[in-house]
Design a protein around this nucleic acid. Sequence first.
DNA 1: CACATATAAAACCGTCTAGTTATTAAACCG
DNA 2: CGGTTTAATAACTAGACGGTTTTATATGTG
Lengths: 118, 118
Amino acid sequence: MGVDVLDATFAALADPTRRAILARLAEGEATVTELAAPFAMTQPAVSKHLRVLERAGLISRGRDAQRRPCRLEVSPLKSAMDWLANYRGYWEESYQRLDDLLGELQAGGPGAVDREAP
Amino acid sequence: MGVDVLDATFAALADPTRRAILARLAEGEATVTELAAPFAMTQPAVSKHLRVLERAGLISRGRDAQRRPCRLEVSPLKSAMDWLANYRGYWEESYQRLDDLLGELQAGGPGAVDREAP
DNA sequence: CACATATAAAACCGTCTAGTTATTAAACCG
DNA sequence: CGGTTTAATAACTAGACGGTTTTATATGTG
């Protein structure tokens, strides 16, 4: 189910231009020309990057006259992070304690611990 | 420094075969034929995937007679997760509190908690 | 209406990717 | 030694990628 999502998400993140675009959008909506400005490439090239990000669900686009403002959509980033989180324990053990804590907080406060292992 | 690392890491993770290989290696070392067994593709194809993973620093390889056992190397995964962590706050606010907690724990253990007022 | 702005689309190019088959290299075994 | 196992290499193909230039499509403005 979630396989294509991870494929498209990681593939989209593999390009530094696209990561920079996402970083810019983290500060708020932006138009295509605003997004293209910092890069030494043509506008169609940036539009292609945006199409890749859009197909991966990492951005969505509105309409404002001729402009197509883009905004960040983080849910694929969360999916990617969830996948990576399976390996968290291999490099940092204190994260395991934090994971437990998160479970407690989300379950309704300390005392309500109920974890499951994958 | 970290740009090419992220490029190679995310590109490597964009393929479901390679993600499955990493998942398998998370349970311990494995040889090329062991890794290739679950997949409906030829051995050279798997060897190519392993070369991609190796160039990305996600696996390392030993020597055991004819065998080349592979083992997981997680530090690029940590780099990828660190990058994604910048967006954590956009989908989950309780992570921010946990991040603060992590800082406290690493700074001096659970007795050294010294939170700042919000 | 004519023109400028903002963006997408088309056609093209060189490089990379994911797979194949066939071959080679190295190490073990009888 | 000859044969088998393990893995890498080579050569090839089809398609995706990242970029270009050129052209088209909306939309606002004088």
